[in-house]
């Protein structure tokens, strides 16, 4: 969401720049006595379209829906960018880099082909969730690798490790 916000702000900035330049050109043309082609076209559209016409209602509905979607996306709780090591600690770990490191540790287990790790924090407890393409018999090895890596990172108390192993598809 952070990246989406930044890209959206850049697009908004470009739109403001382009729209502002257009408004300057049209305003100066109108001040000199010759209204620009855009003003002429928009004037005709805006004075003939009524609020209850279908296009006006569709645009209004679209704007409302867009606003609601953006509002929900901005107000819901985001996943934190960093995780505090302990409740009263001043040390934090960058969450995404941690997840990548844990995924690398899982990938080092024999029979694991691909792995993705998501880290959540409930109070003082970390809850890693692993999704990996591997032999289901490798569950204990995956859990051991994760425990060892979390120990090396001096991670705080951890809850149950949620391991989901998907068998690799075999070519027929």
């Amino acid at each position: 969401m952070r990246t989406v916000n930044r890209v959206a702000t850049l697009l908004l900035a470009v739109a403001l720049l382009a729209g502002g330049a257009l408004a300057v050109a049209e305003g100066l043309l109108a001040a000199l006595g010759g209204p620009g082609p855009l003003v002429h076209r928009w004037y005709a559209t805006l004075t003939t379209t009524r609020w209850q016409d279908a296009p006006a209602r569709a645009v209004a509905g679209g704007v409302t829906l867009l606003g609601l979607v953006v509002l929900v996306a901005e107000l819901r709780r985001w996943r934190p960018a960093r995780l505090r090591l302990a409740e009263d600690d001043r040390w934090h770990l960058h969450r995404r880099s941690m997840e990548r490191r844990l995924a690398r540790a899982v990938c080092a287990v024999p029979s694991v082909r691909r792995a993705r790790v998501r880290l959540r924090r409930r109070g003082d407890v970390w809850r890693p969730r692993v999704t990996a393409t591997a032999d289901p018999a490798a569950r204990a090895d995956v859990e051991f690798a994760l425990h060892r890596e979390l120990d090396r990172l001096a991670a705080p108390r951890r809850g149950r490790i949620d391991v989901r192993l998907l068998p690799a598809r075999r070519a027929t």
Partner: peptide, 10 residues
Amino acid sequence: SGLAVAVGGV
């Protein structure tokens, strides 16, 4: 009014 729009655009 045209100049006001131009200033708004700036």
